[in-house]
Computed example of a mutant assay.
Amino acid sequence: MTTFVQFHLLTPDPPSNPNRDDQGRPKQAMVGGQPRLRLSSQSIKRAVRETAYFRQNLAGHVGTRTKRIAEEVEKHLFAKGIDGANARSAAATVANVFSKLEAEKDGKPPLTTTLAFVSPDEWRFAHDLAERLTAGEKLDTKELKKLVLRRADGAVDIAMFGRMLAEGPDFNREAAVQVGHAITTHRALVEDDWYSAVDDLKTREEDAGAGHLGETGFGSGIYYLYACVNVELLVENLCGDHALAAKGLEALACALATATPKGKQNSFGHHPRAHYIRLERGSAQPRDLSGAFFKPVDLRANDNDGVRAWISALEEMAGKLDHCYGPACDAVMVLNVPEGQGTLADLAAFAAAAAHG
């Protein structure tokens, strides 16, 4: 029987531009026929991986997404005192295990054609393989992948968010965590900020005008975010390590509550935290609660009741779905900032318990 842990979060964001489109403006989506602001799943997962909950609490169990595998392996070989040409050749051979290589540019080691998600264990095996190659050991090219790549190991973020290796599909990993795109729970439009900057050394007599003029987009709103964890798959991706899976779930709960994409953070200083988190644990088929916001919440119709209007809509939708389809979980825990209910520590412990059955 599969156990799922489902997160439902409501997070108010101040005026900001954390996740930009190709024109530098906040990403958007049409939901229920109304324009909304949007934070992409990819940007949220990146923000989660960059938190101290992952980088520090899971140190040694976090992967690296990069095209610079040959460069890193070459650095390792240089540190071992291996000469340049030999190191360059071995590093390229090892990098090719993960992906095809681009042509060398400016005398630098070749990049892989795609970003590869590399676990700490795979880095160690890659370095070991490179050393063996420089020592003159002859290895069958068909066996190189098996010497480095792993189907499961201790990389929590790869176990959670998965990876695809086009050149080694046998070593792909199915994501144990699904993360939705966060959308504003109400109608929201991108606004434009016209700004100017002053040249400190410009004299008044010379010109009273600004030294620079610019324009940037921004938006604000209360976002709904949904994430779902397949706990059995997470444990499987971590080689059956229940303790590490529990530690990962604890880190994920804390990170989702506090992480935010960092686009233009210096300009807007946005550091939001979730004001409401509904955490569900059970074996029923997962379901999100985005339907609560297909009709945008109108704060003006709720007597300026703040975040409570959105919390009420979310809880009402959960109740209606449970009535029609049956309970979606065996246990629920809530963090509700407006009501002073729950703590992040309790929530994290609740999530971690799922990995222990």
Score class of each variant (00 low, 15 high):
residue 1 M to L: 15
residue 2 T to W: 12
residue 3 T to M: 15
residue 5 V to E: 06
residue 6 Q to R: 15
residue 7 F to I: 07
residue 18 P to F: 07
residue 26 P to R: 14
residue 28 Q to N: 07
residue 28 Q to Y: 03
residue 31 V to K: 06
residue 36 R to Y: 10
residue 38 R to Y: 07
residue 42 Q to K: 13
residue 42 Q to P: 11
residue 44 I to M: 14
residue 45 K to L: 08
residue 48 V to T: 03
residue 49 R to K: 14
residue 54 F to E: 01
residue 59 A to R: 13
residue 59 A to H: 05
residue 65 R to W: 11
residue 66 T to G: 05
residue 66 T to D: 07
residue 67 K to Q: 15
residue 72 E to I: 10
residue 75 K to A: 08
residue 85 A to F: 08
residue 97 V to A: 12
residue 101 L to S: 09
residue 102 E to M: 12
residue 107 G to D: 10
residue 107 G to M: 08
residue 109 P to H: 06
residue 110 P to E: 07
residue 112 T to I: 11
residue 112 T to N: 13
residue 117 F to H: 14
residue 118 V to Q: 01
residue 122 E to N: 04
residue 123 W to F: 06
residue 128 D to V: 00
residue 130 A to L: 07
residue 136 G to K: 02
residue 139 L to S: 02
residue 139 L to M: 07
residue 142 K to I: 03
residue 143 E to V: 13
residue 145 K to E: 13
residue 145 K to W: 08
residue 150 R to V: 04
residue 152 A to F: 06
residue 152 A to K: 09
residue 153 D to C: 12
residue 154 G to R: 05
residue 159 A to Y: 07
residue 159 A to L: 08
residue 161 F to Y: 13
residue 169 P to D: 11
residue 175 A to S: 13
residue 176 A to M: 09
residue 179 V to D: 06
residue 189 L to Y: 13
residue 190 V to R: 09
residue 191 E to N: 06
residue 192 D to C: 08
residue 196 S to K: 04
residue 201 L to F: 11
residue 202 K to Y: 00
residue 204 R to G: 07
residue 207 D to T: 02
residue 209 G to L: 04
residue 210 A to R: 10
residue 211 G to F: 02
residue 215 E to Q: 07
residue 220 S to V: 10
residue 226 Y to F: 14
residue 228 C to D: 12
residue 231 V to H: 09
residue 233 L to H: 12
residue 243 A to F: 00
residue 244 L to F: 04
residue 244 L to W: 03
residue 245 A to N: 14
residue 245 A to Q: 12
residue 252 L to H: 00
residue 253 A to C: 09
residue 258 T to V: 10
residue 258 T to R: 12
residue 262 K to I: 11
residue 263 G to I: 12
residue 263 G to N: 11
residue 271 H to T: 13
residue 276 Y to E: 02
residue 279 L to N: 10
residue 283 S to E: 15
residue 284 A to G: 13
residue 288 D to I: 05
residue 292 A to S: 07
residue 295 K to G: 05
residue 296 P to A: 05
residue 296 P to F: 02
residue 303 D to A: 02
residue 305 D to I: 03
residue 308 R to G: 04
residue 309 A to P: 03
residue 309 A to Y: 04
residue 315 E to Q: 14
residue 318 A to L: 14
residue 321 L to I: 11
residue 321 L to T: 08
residue 323 H to D: 15
residue 323 H to R: 15
residue 328 A to P: 05
residue 328 A to S: 15
residue 329 C to Y: 15
residue 333 M to C: 14
residue 336 N to M: 08
residue 338 P to F: 02
residue 342 G to R: 06
residue 346 D to F: 06
residue 348 A to V: 00
residue 354 A to T: 11
